[in-house]
Amino acid sequence: MSTRIALRTAALGYLGVLVLVPLAMILYRTFEDGLVAFFQSVTTPAAISAISLSLTIVAIVVPLNVVFGLVTALALARGNFPGKGILQAVVDLPFAVSPVIVGVALILFWGNDGWLGGALPVIFSLPGMVLATVFVTLPFVVREVEPVLREIGTEQEEAASTLGASRWQTFWRITLPAIKVGVFYGVVLTVARSLGEFGALTVVAGGVAGESQTLTLLVHARYIDDHNTFGAYAASTVLMGLALVTLVLMALLERRREA
């Protein structure tokens, strides 16, 4: 009994020191001078631009990765094709490769001196930031959905086909409702990771305030370059708030669909 309490205390203490206390400190510092100061700090033109840029990236990346993730998860769970093992490994690659390397690779490919010789305006603009974010968030939907697909098996889909449903009807009416929890977690993780992406973006985004600066880049710029620590805390709080809102929204959506 006492060992169990000791273990729990240790686990909570560990979490507290590593996660909760530092985050709480940010919140404390953000609101220390009141709501007005916070509000002013996060409504500067640069901050508004950064928030909208981050949300734009999320709005493009999530649908892309949901579609890609569903197709890939279906192929991995149901398909039987040559190169399946390679696809399995490639899907995990973004987990293994540091985001900074992703950024450098994108410049090598798309940049002015790259393979495509800068034919398209990708680097230092929105397409580059989207590409980098898509890359680092690639595995989430796949890895959340694939095991659910395996678990539900193919019997329900087969039953639907014997009842006359086409493949498309079966996917919408049977498969998707059955895997929606997996899709839900995949989307939450993708949104959180997209908002928080920093390493690849420092390389491919110009980081120009009001233009190509996401929220994470804004936090960094305010803290390191401008020595505006309060501004950095305030922007961090917005970042955390957005992630929290995502989680709550998705949970509400989930509950409403089930009711």
């Binding site: 019997e155 329900q156 087969e158 039953a159 639907a160 086909s161 014997t162 009842l163 449903a165 086409s166």
Partner: peptide, 28 residues
Amino acid sequence: PQKRGIGFVFQHYAAFKHMTVRDNVGFG
């Protein structure tokens, strides 16, 4: 299978878990 005019019953029921009994039976 869609066009064979068959009814198929599976060992493990293959019930559509997210649908009511009414919607399951009315699916086809």
